[in-house]
Design a protein around this nucleic acid. Structure first.
Lengths: 110, 110
DNA sequence: TTATTATATTGCAATATTACGATATAATTT
DNA sequence: AAATTATATCGTAATATTGCAATATAATAA
């Protein structure tokens, strides 16, 4: 095997896993942090910012876009990227759930 | 290639990526959700809950534990698992940063 | 001591990810 | 139109992940 058994989990579990998986790489964390700082930029700016080749950055941007964490807008020959709040809202909703379970009770088995 | 170039990113970026990567699988999301619900349980309970074989569940638990998202406590022949708040606090800190960047300004390039 | 119970580890096949050179596409400039 | 600029896609090698059967380990019970 090697393929995730997505059909055995709920839609919301699969959707959340797609979002967190997209965040599960330091290059993509760096891209998100950079986009938060500069608000919006073109792919070339990120290539200059990261220690990765242009095709690699392009691939990471594609994954973040597919997951729904960023948006890309054609602007002449370039493409302008920015944060997609919709995706982040979904992840934040999960951590709201985590908080509501942990805030009041101090759960410790060890 | 195929190996992530972790040495080219900051410690905090790598650490956060380890945490989000661990959350990037529906089975591990399901385990976290279950642990939040029952507060603590043994591995066998999760095996009964998920559509995965015991070694597979054990492996997912190991990854969550290595990332710092859960704790395991030996309790006789069994091991009692529960949420590790420290790990979640680190992820929550990142989303606090995201919020602080997005809350006031409505960033949209498209 | 010999089961039994609970979990971890090993080994391996199938699949996915990461990274990048080479190349394609598409808009702009000269 | 030809060159330039900006990004995406293709192809591929190296590596990582997923899943599980078989087996090992470790504590408890009979």
């Amino acid at each position: 095997m090697g393929a995730t058994k997505t059909d055995h989990f709920s839609d919301s579990q699969n959707e959340l896993a797609i979002l967190t998986k997209a965040l599960g790489h330091p290059a993509r964390i760096a891209i998100i942090e950079y986009l938060l700082k500069v608000e919006s930029c073109i792919c070339g700016d990120i290539v200059n910012e990261l220690p990765l080749a242009q095709p690699t950055v392009s691939q990471h941007l594609k994954e973040l876009k597919n997951a729904g964490l960023i948006k890309g807008n054609v602007e002449g020959a370039a493409i302008c990227y920015c944060i997609n709040e919709t995706g982040f809202d979904k992840v934040k909703a999960f951590f709201k759930l985590v908080n509501s379970h942990l805030d009041d009770k101090r759960i410790q088995c060890c």
